[in-house]
Simulated assay, not measured.
Amino acid sequence: MDIYPASVERLIEALTHLPTIGRKSAQRLAMSIVDKPEEEVKRLAEALLEVKERVMHCEICHNLADGPICSVCEDETRDHSVICVVEDVQGLIAIEKTKSYHGLYHVLGGLLNPMQGIGPQELDLNRLVDRIGQDDVKELVFAISPTVEGEMTAHFIRDVVKDTGIRLSRIASGIPIGASLEYFDDMTLIKALEERRSMDA
């Protein structure tokens, strides 16, 4: 005999496809939704649909945006001579929250991982190279988590752009091996950015 009505079971199953949500967490979320007033549930459903309909990746840096260009790339007050390379949007948000970095970004959307079939083309690294060639970029700052894949990615990009004469730097130590930027407090990230060190080309 099914414990939950079929409609609730379908909701639980759908929720388990979200990151870090196991079946027990999905059950709690589903029951919370069932108990919410209808208007709140409608607002949630509308917000989910709106995100899928409107949100896209910025044509320049691959950040999230409500249009072709994100708010960071559109901001003329930012320092367009510096690009911070991050693994994902969460890394960008973590740095933005510090309010200490005022340059642009390039979101890789992942890291090189030959075992999983993720190569330079999957990360669209050509777009980053084009930005360096077309814009007046003087420095690339690598703010990539110090995992094996992160190190591989940073060194690959370094080798690709080393002949451009651009300055290459990476955020300072203090970020533990294998850690993700989104889990660190603002002061740790501020210090890491301020004390970024040059990468030998």
Results as ranks from 00 to 15, higher is better:
residue 1 M to Y: 11
residue 2 D to H: 03
residue 2 D to P: 06
residue 4 Y to L: 02
residue 5 P to R: 08
residue 5 P to H: 14
residue 6 A to D: 14
residue 6 A to P: 09
residue 7 S to T: 11
residue 8 V to E: 03
residue 8 V to T: 14
residue 11 L to W: 05
residue 12 I to Y: 11
residue 13 E to C: 11
residue 13 E to A: 11
residue 16 T to R: 13
residue 17 H to A: 03
residue 18 L to C: 11
residue 18 L to A: 08
residue 19 P to R: 06
residue 20 T to W: 05
residue 22 G to R: 12
residue 24 K to I: 03
residue 24 K to D: 02
residue 28 R to H: 14
residue 30 A to L: 08
residue 33 I to C: 00
residue 34 V to Q: 05
residue 36 K to Y: 02
residue 36 K to A: 00
residue 37 P to I: 04
residue 37 P to A: 13
residue 38 E to A: 07
residue 40 E to P: 01
residue 40 E to T: 01
residue 42 K to A: 04
residue 42 K to F: 05
residue 43 R to L: 03
residue 44 L to A: 04
residue 45 A to S: 11
residue 46 E to V: 09
residue 51 V to R: 08
residue 53 E to A: 14
residue 55 V to A: 15
residue 56 M to S: 15
residue 56 M to R: 15
residue 57 H to M: 08
residue 58 C to F: 05
residue 60 I to K: 12
residue 60 I to H: 08
residue 61 C to V: 01
residue 62 H to A: 01
residue 65 A to K: 07
residue 66 D to Y: 11
residue 68 P to S: 06
residue 70 C to P: 15
residue 72 V to A: 05
residue 72 V to H: 11
residue 73 C to H: 04
residue 76 E to R: 14
residue 78 R to Q: 04
residue 82 V to P: 00
residue 85 V to D: 04
residue 89 V to W: 05
residue 89 V to Y: 13
residue 91 G to M: 00
residue 99 K to A: 08
residue 100 S to P: 04
residue 100 S to A: 12
residue 101 Y to A: 06
residue 103 G to M: 02
residue 104 L to N: 01
residue 106 H to C: 14
residue 106 H to L: 13
residue 107 V to I: 10
residue 107 V to K: 09
residue 109 G to C: 07
residue 109 G to T: 13
residue 112 L to R: 08
residue 112 L to M: 02
residue 113 N to C: 12
residue 114 P to D: 09
residue 117 G to P: 14
residue 118 I to S: 12
residue 118 I to R: 15
residue 122 E to Q: 15
residue 122 E to K: 15
residue 122 E to D: 14
residue 125 L to N: 08
residue 126 N to C: 12
residue 128 L to R: 02
residue 128 L to W: 05
residue 129 V to D: 12
residue 132 I to F: 00
residue 133 G to N: 07
residue 134 Q to G: 03
residue 134 Q to V: 14
residue 135 D to S: 14
residue 135 D to Y: 06
residue 136 D to V: 04
residue 136 D to I: 02
residue 137 V to F: 01
residue 137 V to H: 04
residue 140 L to H: 05
residue 144 I to Y: 03
residue 144 I to C: 07
residue 146 P to M: 09
residue 147 T to W: 07
residue 150 G to P: 05
residue 151 E to I: 10
residue 152 M to H: 10
residue 153 T to D: 13
residue 154 A to Q: 13
residue 155 H to A: 06
residue 155 H to D: 09
residue 155 H to R: 15
residue 160 V to K: 12
residue 165 G to P: 12
residue 165 G to S: 05
residue 165 G to K: 06
residue 165 G to Q: 05
residue 167 R to M: 13
residue 167 R to L: 10
residue 170 R to N: 09
residue 172 A to S: 12
residue 174 G to Q: 11
residue 175 I to T: 03
residue 176 P to K: 07
residue 177 I to L: 10
residue 177 I to E: 10
residue 178 G to H: 06
residue 178 G to E: 09
residue 179 A to W: 01
residue 183 Y to C: 08
residue 184 F to P: 00
residue 188 T to N: 07
residue 189 L to N: 01
residue 189 L to E: 13
residue 189 L to C: 00
residue 189 L to Q: 01
residue 190 I to G: 06
residue 191 K to I: 00
residue 193 L to H: 01
residue 193 L to P: 01
residue 197 R to L: 15
residue 199 M to T: 09
residue 200 D to C: 09
residue 201 A to C: 14
